[in-house]
Design a protein around this nucleic acid. Structure first.
Length: 270
DNA sequence: AATCGCGCCTGACGGC
DNA sequence: TGCCGTCAGGCGCGAT
């Protein structure tokens, strides 16, 4: 269940199975996802070879000869590779079927994910056009974050979760990054100095990269079982309210900003 | 332009 | 046991 690391791990994991492979079918079990699956999508896809899979934020872009398919996993969705067809289970919503029998299957309890056709120039599609820089890009640095946050009144936590500012930082990694940067999540974004913005950017890059390296926080998509990812064991503050801070042993606090939980150490994060 | 709150949907959990 | 409210990793949209 995806934040950027899970989406990236998924991209890397499914690529070898479906790139250079030809689509022979799209089987829809539930069309009523976040955006209803278009009945034209199968016609657009069948017979096409997947050329590559790109990730933009938390979207996956399947590049085909005549255009791009956008996949979003929502809050609870995941993709699985099945070596051959087997009957769908609960919350399975669609299968992308390939000529060699491989099936790419989407499961999502909450139906917040979707799949849609984005045409030949996906980066001008309205879902992608306004996205901010990728967290690992050189464009995303302390100077950029400092500049974009001037005069912003919202908390720094809310700012880094805004996909127009930077993509791919969800609630878990926002909390974790602010801990490693030693920044209180409730501070107004406009108040942070350049040097603290630099620290925060470094923390975001490190936290996301570390999580990707060990396979994401949550689901292990590779066999479809709901095993916890290894990053789960490394979380410093997220879901650790009441437990001792790993640096100073002060109990981790839980509060809410903008209907989202924040976890932080009131001693280490000022 | 920036901010806020809603809603899409299912399920788990805690209190009574 | 059931009922109810709250919460969950996302995110686009409309109102202000």
């Amino acid at each position: 269940m995806p934040e950027l690391p899970e989406v990236e791990v998924t991209r890397a994991g499914i690529s070898s199975f479906i790139c250079d492979n030809t689509v022979t079918g799209l089987t829809i079990y539930t069309s009523g996802l976040r955006w209803p699956i278009s009945i034209d999508l199968a016609d657009l896809l069948i017979g096409q070879k997947i050329q590559s899979i790109e990730r933009r934020g938390k979207y996956l872009l399947l590049h085909c000869h005549t255009g791009v398919v956008l996949i979003h996993l929502g809050m609870t969705g995941f993709l699985q590779i099945l070596p051959e067809f087997n009957p769908p289970g609960k919350h399975d919503h669609y299968d992308l079927v390939f000529i060699n029998g491989v099936v790419l299957r989407f499961n999502d309890v909450r139906k917040f994910g979707s799949i849609l056709w984005a045409g030949t120039d996906p980066h001008i599609h309205k879902l992608l056009a306004k996205l901010g820089p990728e967290p690992f890009s050189e464009n995303f640095d302390g100077t950029y974050l400092h500049k974009i946050s001037r005069n912003r009144k919202i908390s720094i936590k809310q700012l880094i979760m805004d996909s127009k500012v930077v993509v791919g930082v969800g609630n878990i990694y926002a909390n974790e990054s602010l801990f490693y940067a030693g920044i209180n999540p409730t501070i107004s974004a406009g108040q942070l100095s350049l040097s603290r913005n630099k620290q925060l950017v470094n923390a975001i890059k490190t936290v996301l990269a570390d999580s990707i390296k060990i396979g994401g926080t949550m689901l292990d998509f590779r066999d479809g079982t709901e095993k916890m990812g290894y990053f789960q064991k490394r979380l410093a503050v997220y879901k650790r309210d009441g437990l001792p801070c790993t640096k100073c042993s002060t109990p981790i606090q839980l509060k809410r900003i903008g209907q989202r939980s924040i976890y932080f150490c009131s001693n280490c994060q000022q």
